[in-house]
Design a binder for these strands. Structure first.
Lengths: 229, 229
DNA sequence: CGTCCAGAGTGAACTCCTTCATAGGTGCCT
DNA sequence: AGGCACCTATGAAGGAGTTCACTCTGGACG
């Protein structure tokens, strides 16, 4: 039955793990299970929705699109995480697109149920504050990079971040599943520049490419990012 | 007595206005009143403090400094507002400097008292979420500007934002008290470029300068920002 | 009311990055 | 396997912005 499905998915979120079954049931009643096929827009910039999404499975990207068709990626998210929480509290239009990169399953929570949800699970409020804080920190780091560092530096930082996450998850410091175009959108530069930077890094021995996989020397990369400022 | 002073300052914050006196007293007991002279650092990047500040009077700027001495301003804040709230929840180092632009008075709340404060005043949690959401939106707009728009566009946006705030507060769409250098740090460009843009805007009739004051034609400026993308 | 200095204006050189163009690679799909 | 769509590589030209160098100006303060 649907409620049971929702409850089982809920418990995979750290913030709900270990909650009494009664609480989960109360929460589940407020949530709607939804599926989105690869490539579809879950949220569009300037929408006026007030729904927050818990990402249950799959991968989404949070991106900005310019009037001339340029794209800037803010983030790639994987389950378990959540997005769209800003509209729970203020009534502003959505500030970015969220696109399903793979097929995606989500649980949707509407703003009108937020206070009730927080009463059931106060940790939710702190989780939201913590997530938003993290977003602010990441964005500040991003702005800092755009203002102070050149394109090569930003591309290196993207490679380092992705490879570090991969290393922590699977023990291999590799960048895969990202095209040069996607790396460029994450670094805020052009595809060609990203390509040139990767080529140069191979020549410098900081990364090695195996087909479309980029293996990163985490230590050397960190060293370089710290030193040449 | 100090507690009474704190309580009277507290009530100027919208989030506490109308709270029972008992609640304010409980909150006041957790807060410390502090003063900072013009020019002093209230928060420094990479600090490990876990204090949030309620800005009671004065003006602060939130800025980033690069290794080469370049500066990027994230925000100018005036009372009543607050800053440093991110460190209440995560244990990360401070991600920016906060500098007193005028003499400043603040009330400090330490992280260890946060849960208690939220129990006394649950609206505090929602206020924090709302503030952080606003910050995220502003930062996204910033990143978008840096990625998609040229320096002239960003300078115009700064002028428009400042003049609009001035118009709403005092009925005059004017930029004053900001040097070209400060405008440049807000726009993420060099002093020279900001200066050239202002000169050009005067020639184009979008702004008029009276000594060191810049009077902005809000309508024309908005028009221009929307159109030439 | 003159002096002095932070701030403002502007040309010129140079740098980095985008954009355009074109060739070569990779891997998936039937 | 073959083919096709997408991805990668790299040169060359051009533009936007920084940096440097210098001059001019507003207004604070003695």
């Amino acid at each position: 039955m649907m409620q049971d499905l929702i409850i089982s998915r809920l418990s995979s979120f750290p913030m709900f793990a270990g909650s009494p079954v009664g609480d989960l049931e109360a929460l589940a009643a407020m949530l709607t299970f939804k599926q989105y096929p690869k490539g579809s827009f879950i949220i569009s910039q300037n929408d006026r929705g007030s729904t927050m999404y818990l990402l249950v499975s799959g991968r989404v990207k949070v991106t900005l699109a310019s009037a001339e068709g340029k794209e800037l990626a803010l983030n790639y998210l994987e389950a378990p995480s959540h997005f769209g929480e800003m509209s729970l509290v203020d009534a502003e239009p959505r500030s970015a697109d969220v696109v399903a990169v793979t097929d995606v399953e989500v649980l949707a929570l509407d703003a009108k149920d937020l206070s009730a949800a927080i009463e059931v699970q106060p940790r939710l409020a702190l989780t939201l504050i913590a997530t938003l804080s993290l977003r602010v920190r990441e964005l500040i780091a991003r702005v800092e990079d755009m203002a102070f560092h050149d394109a090569a530096h930003r591309v290196m930082r993207v490679l380092l971040n992705v490879a570090t996450a991969s290393y922590e998850a699977r023990g291999i410091p590799v960048v895969e599943g990202l095209t040069h175009y996607e790396i460029a959108t994450l670094a805020g530069t052009s595809r060609e520049t990203a390509s040139r930077v990767v080529s140069q890094l191979v020549r410098d021995g900081l990364v090695a490419t195996k087909g479309r996989r980029i293996v990163v020397d985490l230590f050397a990369m960190r060293e370089r990012l710290e030193h040449d400022v």
